[in-house]
Design a binder for these strands. Structure first.
Lengths: 130, 130
DNA sequence: TAAGGTACTTGGCCATACATAGTACTTTTC
DNA sequence: GAAAAGTACTATGTATGGCCAAGTACCTTA
């Protein structure tokens, strides 16, 4: 196995744009999973945004308004959620969300995907011990 | 709790842009996790891209070239990886990757993040049984 | 020398998380 | 009763990353 000290290909190595920090990768890891968690929370009964934020924060899944609201809108537009306006005693009315039947199916699919993903990752990370 | 049948806010409900399909969300779920898995594979010794593809596929973590190669470049530019060119008996030379010390630290951080994320998700999904 | 395979690169597209600013309605306070 | 504070939701712009598809370079085989 001879080792090249020079590059056989022309490589432009000059510009390092990568701002590879942990925080950013953590955000990437949460992507998609968040959707799964939110559908799960809604599947248990009618809730509105602040309820969800509370539960997500309690589970240490950091989420902010600017993430949650657009996501709910997206899920609703996709037909996975529906909501009712309900008056509140302390402020403006709230949107209480529930899953549609389509949303339930989607959640089931996501559950499988999540399980597979965890399994796959375990497979890979456990190999390092073997 | 009085329920509004009309919307108290002006809501533009007409354009449904959402192309919410399972496949898409699965892709989102993989984001970031892939990075974690690849760093893990490399941490076990020198490997080149096809080795990784093989192992990832074996673990049912679907990855294609167009995802893997840019990712490796990104990690390398960020100083987490380095590589040697090694000649091959059956084709062009290969880049054999290893982790830098910075890469090892990063991997440790990611391991913690991943554990937390799995825990958080468990917390939320298990609540539905309670 | 031509053909086919292997290894890696590049550019463009799309979806999502987040920050930030803004709107609408409520209750409280003076 | 009007201003202030608070709650709930909306809208826009930016950046990142996965994927597709096409392309380049090198090697072996015929």
């Amino acid at each position: 196995m001879a080792i090249h000290s020079t590059f056989p290909y022309i490589v432009i190595d000059s510009l390092k744009i990568g701002c590879m920090n942990l925080e950013n990768t953590q955000v990437q890891m949460r992507k998609g999973i968040l959707e799964f968690c939110i559908l799960h929370i809604i599947s248990r009964g009618e809730v509105y945004a602040s309820d969800m934020l509370e539960e997500l924060t309690a589970a240490k899944m950091i989420v902010v308004e600017g993430t949650l609201y657009p996501l709910l809108t997206r899920l609703k537009n996709a037909g996975l959620l529906e909501y009712k306006w309900v008056e509140s005693k302390s402020g403006p009315p709230r949107k209480y969300y529930t899953l549609t039947s389509q949303g339930k199916k989607f959640l089931d699919g996501l559950s499988d995907t999540w399980k597979d993903l965890v399994l796959s990752t375990q497979k890979i990370t456990n190999n390092s011990i073997a």
